[in-house]
Every structure is written in structure tokens, then in C-alpha cells.
Amino acid sequence: MSDTPSHVPVKFKMPKWVRGPQDFVGGLALMAIAAFALWASSDLQGMHGFSFGAGTAPRMFGVLLLGLGAAVALMGLLTDGEHITIYAWRGPLFVSLAIISFAITIRPLGLVISAFASFIISALGTPETKWKETIIVGICLTIGCSLLFPYALGLPLQLFPRFLVQ
């Protein structure tokens, strides 16, 4: 998973005293996640006597993650490490949009519309897309899914928009 392409030249600029920016930022982010978890579980009951409360374990692991995040960040400060490769925006944006659009439309609009729409939206995620081809494949895939999931597998998926069916 970690074989990030080596020929990406673009890097974030970081102050000189940060020797391993990848770890430094990663560690800080983990600390933030841990702090968030500690805040989120702060309303839960703690230890009573020697038995755990609902909040004991989350807090325990939260503190542990806070410490580990700090250690990772410290390693990033003190040892030479990788730079951060730049984040792409196009892929993440359109794939996320496709997923969100599927989630929003599957109930009211049914499988046919929502699967096809998500297919087209996620295809926007790369400049390589050839539209004619994509639309044809999208239509075929939508038909395939509409036959496979509700009929062949018997899943309770609605195919068409609710207002058309009623």
C-alpha cells in the first residue's frame, strides 16, 4: 500500500527544523484524532471501584493514541524522513461526490438513476475518461446491476423513482 509513486516531484514546503514532515504531520493529526475521541467520550462514566465504566476503555485507548501520535510527531522532528507528496483533488473530490450522490438518491430515485449518476460523476475523477465509451459502459453496467441485485439476488432494492412507481 505504501508504494507511492516515486516520480512525483511536487512537495509541500515545511520549515527547516522539521526533518521528516510526513511523520510530523501524521503524528499531529493522530493527536488531534485522539483529542477528539477523548472529548467525545468525556461524558461517559469512568471507573467505579475496580470495574470499568462505559468510558474507561475509550479514554484509555484515547490517551494511548495521544501518546503514540506525539511519539510519531517527535520522530518526524528528530529524524530525517519523507516529504509529503501533494494531495490530488480531482480523484478524491469526484469519488466522494459519487458516493454521496448514491447515498442521497438511492432511496428516493431508485437504483437505475442513482447508479448511473454515480458512475458518471465518479468518471469525472480522471482526465483519461472518454465520454462516449463511459456512457455506453455506464448504461450497460446499470442494466446489469438492475438485473443482478434485485432479481438474481433478490435484494429489496427499488429500481425506479418512488413517484413514478406509485
Binding site: 447515498a103 454515480s118 483519461e128 446491476c145
Partner: peptide, 24 residues
């Protein structure tokens, strides 16, 4: 891949949705 990845997105989305029928 330009055709593969939107298909995987759709399959994943349908697969996850079908486990609990939950858009969330």
C-alpha cells in the same frame, strides 16, 4: 482503469448499502 474504477465505486456502494439498507 478509467472504466474499471467507476464500476468498482458502484459495486462497493451497492454492496455496502445492501448489508443494512442504510445510506449512511
Amino acid at each position: 482503469y478509467r472504466l474499471m474504477f467507476p464500476s468498482i465505486v458502484i459495486f462497493c456502494a451497492i454492496g455496502i448499502y445492501s448489508i443494512n439498507n442504510a445510506p449512511v
